[in-house]
Design a protein around this nucleic acid. Sequence first.
RNA 1: GGGCCGGUAGCUCAGCCUGGAAGAGCGCUCGGUUCGCACCCGAGAGGUCCCGGGUUCAAAUCCCGGCCGGUCCA
Length: 910
Amino acid sequence: MVSRLMEKGIPCRKLEELGFKKYRCKVCGSVFWSKVPRETCGDAPCERYRFLDIGCRRLGYEESMKEFLQFFERNGHKVIDPRPVVARWREDLYLTIASIVLFQPHVTSGMVPPPANPLVVAQPCIRLEDIDNVGLTMGRHLTNFIMGGHHAFNYPDKWVYWIDETVDYAYRFFVEDLRVPEEEITFKESWWEGGGNAGPAFEVAIGGLEVATLVFMQYSVENGKYLEMPIKVVDTGYGIERIAWLASKGVTAFHVIYGDLVHHFFVKLGVDEPSEDILRAALVESYGVDSVEDLAEKVSRDLGVSSKEVASMLRRAVEVFSLLDLTKTIALMLSDGVVPSNSGEGYLARLVIRRALRKISALGSDVKLGELVDLQIEKWYHLFPRMGKMRSYILEVLDIEEEKFREIIKSLPQIAKKFLKKQPSLEDLVELYDSRGVPPDMLAEYLRKVHGIAIDVPKNFYSMVAARHARTPLAKKSEKARLPNEIVEWTKNFPPTRRLFHEDPYLREFRSKVLGVLGNYVVLDATAFYPEGGGQLGDTGEICYGSECVKVVDTQKVGDVVVHVVERPISIAPGAEIVGKVDWERRYRLMRHHTATHLLLGALRKVLGEHVWQAGAEKTPTKARLDVTHYKIPSVDELKSIEKLVNEMITKGIHVVTKELDRNEAEERYGFVIYQGGVPQTARIRIVEIPGWDVEACFGTHVKNTSELGGFHIVNVEKIADGVVRFEYVAGTALIDYVSELEQKLSDIATAVGSSKREVADKVRSMVGELRNANSLLKAYRDLIVREVTSKASYEARDYVSGTKIFVYKLPVKDYRLANMISRELTQKIPRLIAFVLAPHEKGCYVEISLGKEAASLVDARSIIKELAKRLPIKGGGKHDHVTAIAEVPMTEFVNVLEKALSTDLIKAS
RNA sequence: GGGCCGGUAGCUCAGCCUGGAAGAGCGCUCGGUUCGCACCCGAGAGGUCCCGGGUUCAAAUCCCGGCCGGUCCA
């Protein structure tokens, strides 16, 4: 399909006008355009790196970014602000991996207009797929980079620009603005796909370095089929780091991006900086190498020096380079409020942090990760002000993460013990990594250094781990089907329901017309019943028609249509008028809990920090709960001040503002915090604002004034996952209910322990003391009885066959533990003894048979049970000198049978 | 969201596979040794084996469910 779409190549008159011609690369075979005839496409690896030898304007890193933005601004593009590196506006993506991500899916689908058209943005992006190559390629691979993107959205009725103009901009930017000789530039024809869209693309390369990709997005990909998009999108990505590299002639991209910081890092980490010769050679050779050894060999061959020395120097330098990159990625992610955790984007943050910590420890340095990240914050906060604002959060979180890492290191000696004598199997290594986070190379190094033991770590270790996590297809988390499929289909026949509950959240009774009824599902033209959504439960109440009323047990929505679920199937003709009555007591509780949730979230962000982000919520009539991202359970003091803040907001009586805004306007005015509760897929967004406190995109019903909550109390706080804290709380009438329920419980306890509410705590304390006493008394009494019985046995035990002795003791209470103690002690003291200790049991009689050392050498206790089993129903077993059993006859009968058996042939010396 | 590992004395853990009186080291208390301390020696206290259910004569151990912690991967 793609090849057919690409068959004709990319039509571009502009390149022809500029005098470019098509060629085919001798190495990779792809088609490319060039001003002068050439053998290869100009991109590495087909062509060696030459870009440092190509003349052009001299620009630094930030200058290059500004130059890019200004060039497009001069050419009619509006510069828009970059967004966070965490893609909060998207449910299908954790990180911002490209500038086009800002506009998918709502702009590319046509639902929302772009904030400007055409526009240009310098968007910080994070991509983790090359994390293992960072450093080794001298800066071609990075986990964070700035993508310069100019975008045009072409609508059928409003065309902006397309291929020719896009190519022209690229040509003019590089040739006229940066003054790169035009014969050095190639445009390679290619195909791009991502985020459900696809289209042909030009890859722009200069001296072996790909500097930009120009994508002409025109297909949406559905089930492997390419469908023509109504909106054609120009999606370009200029690598700002690479452009700066070309323009500044830095020896590695790290020197270009980080400047002085490179030297600081080398010094802090105690690593020698390789000479420029070595780095330059490394850069040229870095394409296609997959290990430092490989690279070092090639470099030393080029320079004619010892490869061993080069290898150790390069290995350490590569780690420093990658730490430069990783620490900036960490600063970016954490400053956008990611909380490290074991799932979601939090895991990605932890992954990068762990990687960085491992590298620091591999270098043998004791520098704290926080120190390195702090250097990055200092360098970058003028570009990314959030880094400055979030600094204390970032450093605290890194401390915690570093501590967790140290715990893993601390466990090494313990783990290593197991492998002192035996080689760990691959299975051992995988399990250690998978379940305890111990990377095999760390274990290998420990064993080598401390115990001088070498172990094998297979080269393909990480792919073995991956195989263990056999990929399951990404099950799209669908909303729990609250309505049967046929009902969902049926609702598609109706127009959007008028939302009286939004027009007036206090409306309890209303008249409206029936649009349709199917069984016990009712659709009206307008309703005051709130349908479940945004964590607020659907309303209940009743619908009356004529003289008849039916209970509404639930309200749901499908798209814009509200569906009332009634108690029993009814039949009302479409067009009939009904009266709807909302269960107001319940609904008002829900409303107050909903507003309380917004108040709490605002307070949490104030007290705990702006990294606090809603991770889930539920409001019921009796209780509400809110899950947020946070890295530890809040302290008692923090909880107190959170509760106090919320109650102050209630006392102040703040007016709650609700309005509808265009999506772009809402985002621009309030930022992405409005998407705490989820991202609505609509062009217009309903905003609920508690001025100065909290703003959220929210569908729910809220009280007019915070004073209506009356009061607020947090009833429970728990960590439900690493990095997620759950708050449960009550407000309004639910608070009163909670208190009286609590009081009732207290009085129940007081009654049960025979005390007053006032003194119940003391009473319970003394009871626990008494229980402890009773237990130690019980122990003492048991010992006493054991002694008594033992001394009784010493003269009461009677002689039996082969020099053995017999003693039968009937314990009158169901204390099997004591029975055990007695039988053990008896045979311990009298080695020739065969002891029978009996105790009552529901089924009859509990039997414990124990043999002293000498007796056990003559008789097997298990055979005694076998013999008895021939004479009465008994089940049991144990070891040769001790068995336990249950006989299903009363104790007296058991004794009779036992005595009779003893006098015949129960026990035969073996 | 999925996989895996773990929860036993104040702490670090063994025991679990293969069911049969709850263990070790460190720490604590007391005593000995010592001018005193450390070391050493001896004795002792300290456990709802995470919770609930099941299987069994018998469960820390086997099975099921839950809770909590850790970790890897999306």
